[in-house]
Design a protein around this nucleic acid. Structure first.
Length: 282
DNA sequence: AAGACGGTCAACCGCTTGTCG
DNA sequence: ACGACAAGCGGTTGACCGTCT
C-alpha cells in the first residue's frame, strides 16, 4: 500500500500564491509561530497544502531572507561548498545566511554551472575540462570524486547510524579545509578562495555584502511580500516586548529590502514581538 | 507587431529522514 | 523493533519575461 497523500489534492489550491494568501500565512506564523504545517492551512484559513505553506514561508516569506542575486563572495562559497558537499543544497544553504536551498539550487543551475563551464571547469567534478583525453591520473581522480559524491548523495540503507555519525564528523572536519581539487577553481578565478580562509560562521556573525535589489526579477511576489511585511509591522510593534537595535548589521540587509533608508533609520530601536525575534535568530 | 525561443525562478512532486507512540 | 506521521530534501516542471527574428 502506498503512502497517504499529505492532503486532498482536489481541495487544495495550487500554483502561484496571491498576496492575500501570503498575508494570511505571514500573519498566522507571526502570531502563532511555526508549528504543525499539516494543520496550519486550515487554521490560517488557507486552501493550500501544508507542504506548500512551508515552502512558501521558508523560500519566500521568511523575513530573514536576503533578496537579489548572490554576491560574488556568496557564489564562491557555493562553489567551494559544492565541491565538498555535492548537491546537498540545504547543507550549502545553511552556510549562507538568508539564502534558501531552492535559491542556491536555482542559482547553481542557471548561473554558476554555466560560469564554470565557460571557465573550463566541470561543475560536477570541479576539475578542469580538457579538450584532450583525460590522462590516466585525471580519470582516476574524477572517478574517485564521482564515487565520493555518489556516497555523499546516497546515505541510504547501507549506512548505519554509527557510520552516519562518522560521515557527519568527517564532513564537519572537511568543512573549513581546502579540498584537493579546489585549487583548479582558485587558479581560474584568480582568487585564493578557500573555506579555511573564509570562516564558516553562524548567520549571526556573517556579514555578506549585498547588492542593490532594484534589479530584482521576481517582481510580483517579492513586491507583494514586502507590502505584507509593511502592512504587518504595526502588529509586531504591538506584540513585541523585546527591544532590539535595528542598526545591527544582521538586520540591515533585510531591512534594506523592506524599507528605504529613511524608514530604516526611523525604526532604529523599535520594539518587536517574540515570534519575530525568533525568526530573526534563525 | 507578433510569434518563437531561451533563461529564470517559484512551486510542485515524490522520496528520504526524523520523531514519537 | 515497528509503523505512522510530519518535515526535510533534491529533482523537475511550468509560468513568466525578455530578447531575437
Amino acid at each position: 500500500m502506498g503512502r497517504q497523500p499529505c492532503c486532498d489534492k482536489n481541495e487544495v489550491k495550487k500554483g502561484p500564491w496571491s498576496s492575500e494568501e501570503d498575508k494570511k500565512l505571514t500573519n498566522f506564523i507571526l502570531n502563532n509561530g511555526q508549528c504543525c504545517w499539516r494543520s496550519l492551512p486550515k487554521l490560517a484559513g488557507l486552501l493550500r497544502c501544508g507542504k506548500s505553506c512551508r515552502l512558501r514561508w521558508t523560500n519566500y516569506l521568511r523575513p530573514d531572507l536576503k533578496r537579489g542575486l548572490l554576491s560574488e563572495y556568496e557564489e564562491k562559497m557555493v562553489i567551494d561548498l559544492h565541491a565538498q558537499l555535492g548537491n546537498r543544497w540545504s547543507k550549502i544553504a545553511s552556510h549562507l545566511p538568508g539564502r534558501t536551498d531552492n535559491e542556491i539550487k536555482n542559482h547553481w543551475n542557471t548561473h554558476i554551472k554555466k560560469k564554470l563551464k565557460k571557465m573550463g571547469i566541470d561543475p560536477i567534478t570541479h576539475n578542469p575540462i580538457t579538450s584532450d583525453q583525460p590522462t590516466k591520473n585525471q580519470t582516476i581522480i574524477q572517478q574517485e570524486k564521482q564515487e565520493e559524491n555518489k556516497n555523499i548523495g546516497t546515505t541510504t540503507t547501507l549506512i548505519t547510524p554509527q557510520s552516519q555519525t562518522n560521515l557527519n564528523q568527517q564532513e564537519n572536519e572537511n568543512i573549513g579545509t581546502c579540498p584537493k581539487n579546489i585549487n583548479s577553481i582558485d587558479e581560474v578565478m584568480n582568487n585564493n578562495f578557500c573555506t579555511n580562509e573564509v570562516p564558516l560562521i553562524s548567520p549571526k556573525e556573517v556579514l555578506v555584502p549585498h547588492e542593490s535589489t532594484t534589479s530584482s526579477t521576481s517582481s510580483f511576489s517579492s513586491q507583494s511580500s514586502i507590502n505584507i511585511l509593511e502592512d504587518l509591522l504595526p502588529n509586531w510593534q504591538c506584540d513585541f516586548n523585546m527591544e532590539i537595535s535595528w542598526a545591527d548589521d544582521d538586520f540591515s540587509s533585510t531591512l534594506d529590502y523592506l524599507f528605504n533608508d529613511d524608514d530604516v533609520s526611523d525604526m532604529n530601536n523599535t520594539t518587536i514581538s517574540q515570534d519575530w525575534s525568533q525568526v530573526l535568530e534563525v
